[in-house]
């Protein structure tokens, strides 16, 4: 076969020549989101956290399905710190109220504060971060400094000071808590959005879109933001957990939700009176809080892995 010395040629049938650059048509089309979803579905971390969150949502929306005992009625001091009895599986609080019922009914307040705060933070943070990152210039400088100021203030400490203002002391409600949390937490979201937008804004496809005649703002909305969404979604999921803890902390300190609203933070504060005699009263709301936060953080982790561009093929 090798007529000429050391000039080797492989038999042609071993490596038939393929058409240059043929399009593969054997698989179903895959968008980034369907690809991420496919990856998510296979992760146990995601399945567990998603099931937990689903369960929590059902509990928050329909607490009546899980307990027939109204949370604030029928509290009898005679039952104070009483152990579990039939119909009252977790026992009674210091005030003689049913612990199980209070934990079930507290879900709603915790989740709604968390979700509402995340929505507010998303609206404020993404808008400001995207504009600052995309347009740059003085707007960016001003917003970056403003963000730095808020950034230097840890969430809880800042909230402690703000809630000392007379207005907040007199008008405690879900909305004031949401307001305080959003006010202090948007800079982080803005910062992440800004970073993601800066990364995408110089991509060729953004320039290409502008060369096609898409306006500068149009390119931001149509091309830059959708591609910057992944870190935003991840942070939003993680922050949901953080905000629920913040609400509980503030309520525990008596500056969050008013006593009239059932929440895990209020329950933990109330259980403090019996911490030495029957610590399990504090255990139940604390466990509910921990499971909720844990499931959101697990969800955030799973979503981060699924959306990681490095794990994407080609």
């Amino acid at each position: 076969m090798t007529s000429n010395n050391s000039h080797f040629v492989a038999p042609i049938d071993e490596t038939p020549l393929l058409a240059t650059d043929a399009v593969k048509t054997d698989q179903a089309p895959l968008s980034l989101w369907s690809d991420a979803w496919r990856k998510l579905r296979r992760r146990p971390l995601f399945i567990i956290s998603a099931l937990l969150i689903l369960a929590l949502t059902v509990v928050a929306l329909f607490p009546g399905l899980f307990t027939s005992v109204p949370p604030n009625e029928g509290c009898e001091l005679a039952n104070s710190e009483g152990g579990p009895t039939a119909g009252h599986p977790f026992g009674f609080t210091f005030q003689g109220c049913d612990v199980y019922s209070r934990v079930i009914h507290g879900t709603q307040a915790s989740l709604s504060v968390g979700i509402l705060s995340v929505l507010c933070v998303l609206v404020i943070g993404v808008t400001i971060g995207a504009l600052a990152g995309y347009y740059g210039g003085w707007l960016d400088s001003v917003l970056a400094r403003l963000g730095d100021i808020f950034f230097a203030l840890p969430l809880i400490l800042g909230a402690l000071v703000i809630t000392q203002l007379p207005f907040f002391r007199e008008n405690k409600s879900v909305w004031t808590v949401v307001f305080v949390i959003s006010l202090l937490a948007w800079p982080q979201m803005a910062r992440i959005t800004r970073g993601a937008v800066i990364e995408v804004r110089n991509a060729d496809f953004v320039t290409a879109a502008q060369a096609l005649g898409v306006s500068k703002f149009g390119a931001l909305v149509r091309h830059v933001l959708p591609n910057a969404l992944a870190p935003i979604i991840v942070l939003a999921t993680l922050e949901l957990g953080v905000f629920i803890v913040a609400e509980a902390t503030l309520s525990f300190l008596g500056i969050g939700l008013p006593q009239s609203i059932m929440s895990w933070g209020n329950d933990i504060a109330g259980a403090q009176a019996s911490i030495r005699t029957s610590p399990e009263i504090m255990l139940y709301p604390a466990a509910a809080l921990s499971i909720t936060v844990l499931s959101f953080i697990m969800l955030g982790d799973a979503v981060r892995d699924a959306l990681d561009p490095k794990s994407r093929q080609r």
Partner: peptide
């Protein structure tokens, strides 16, 4: 225009 980077010039979304 047609740009250099065939991985960057099309919006992945």
């Amino acid at each position: 225009p047609i740009f250099q980077d065939p991985y960057g010039s099309l919006d992945p979304m």
